Amino acid sequence: MKTGNKTEGTGEEFLAFRLGGEEYGVDILKVQEIRGYENVTQIANAPAYLKGVVNLRGIIVPIIDLRIKFRQDKINYDQYTVVIIVDLHDRTTGIVVDGVSDVLTLAPGQIRQAPQLSGETDYIRGIGSLESRMLILVDIEKLLDTEELAAIEAAAAA
């Protein structure tokens, strides 16, 4: 029996995605859909990581490139680049990633507490470990806090 994203007795489900050489995981219940990357309408004076907006079935959706937000050096858009449409603070938002691999179920024993690091890493919920894979588990709502989303909304409305 499923309750939320916890499957009774087995753990939590995460969508695994790649950014650079690292693999990340986000709560599957935050994910609405996965789309191929498409051209966006750019917004003047927006933060660099806000690529722009797209019209998704009548809803204007801001598109945030996590690769830029995470300060990755080389960012290429190719056939594997995808946009994960997520629900953040009751707002539909798209996040650009290098690719999506699969949905994983992690038991509580497979999720380790994130190391305490200085800087802006409070969005790291933990480290998931499954066989030879390690996933950085992201609390997507902490990654993009309400102030940032308000700034994005203001830029999109301008």
Rank of each mutant, 00 (worst) to 15 (best):
E131V: 13
I34G: 07
G126K: 00
G119S: 07
I60S: 02
G128T: 05
K51R: 14
Q79T: 01
T41N: 12
I60D: 02
I152T: 03
Y80I: 02
D145E: 01
P62K: 00
K6S: 11
L137W: 11
T3S: 11
G25I: 02
V97I: 04
L143M: 12
R67K: 07
G21A: 12
L50M: 11
L104Q: 11
E120V: 09
V83W: 08
A107I: 06
M134C: 09
Y49H: 15
G94W: 00
A151M: 08
T121P: 07
D102I: 07
D122Q: 09
D78Q: 03
I63W: 02
V96G: 00
D73S: 15
A48H: 13
S129I: 14
D27N: 15
G20P: 00
G21C: 07
A154P: 05
G21W: 06
V26A: 10
A150F: 13
Y24F: 15
L19S: 08
I64E: 06
A48W: 03
L135F: 15
P47G: 00
V83T: 10
K69S: 12
H89I: 01
G52M: 06
R112L: 13
Y80N: 13
T93K: 03
K142H: 12
T81P: 00
T7F: 14
V53L: 03
S118R: 05
T121Y: 14
I75H: 05
I43S: 05
A107T: 13
D27S: 12
L56W: 09
D87F: 09
G99C: 07
E153G: 10
F70H: 12
A46C: 02
G52Y: 06
Q42L: 08
S118M: 13
A158F: 14
T93Y: 05
I63C: 03
D90I: 03
I59V: 12
L29D: 10
A158Y: 10
Q79G: 01
E147M: 04
I111P: 15
T41Y: 08
L106G: 15
E153V: 06
Y123F: 15
I75A: 01
G25W: 03
Y49D: 11
G58D: 00
N5M: 01
P115F: 01
S118I: 01
E147L: 14
T10F: 15
H89Q: 10
R57Y: 10
I60L: 02
S132V: 12
Q72H: 15
F70C: 08
G128E: 08
Q113S: 11
R67P: 11
Q110T: 04
G119F: 15
V40F: 04
T105Y: 11
E23K: 08
Y80W: 05
I127Q: 00
E141I: 07
E153H: 10
T10V: 14
D122S: 15
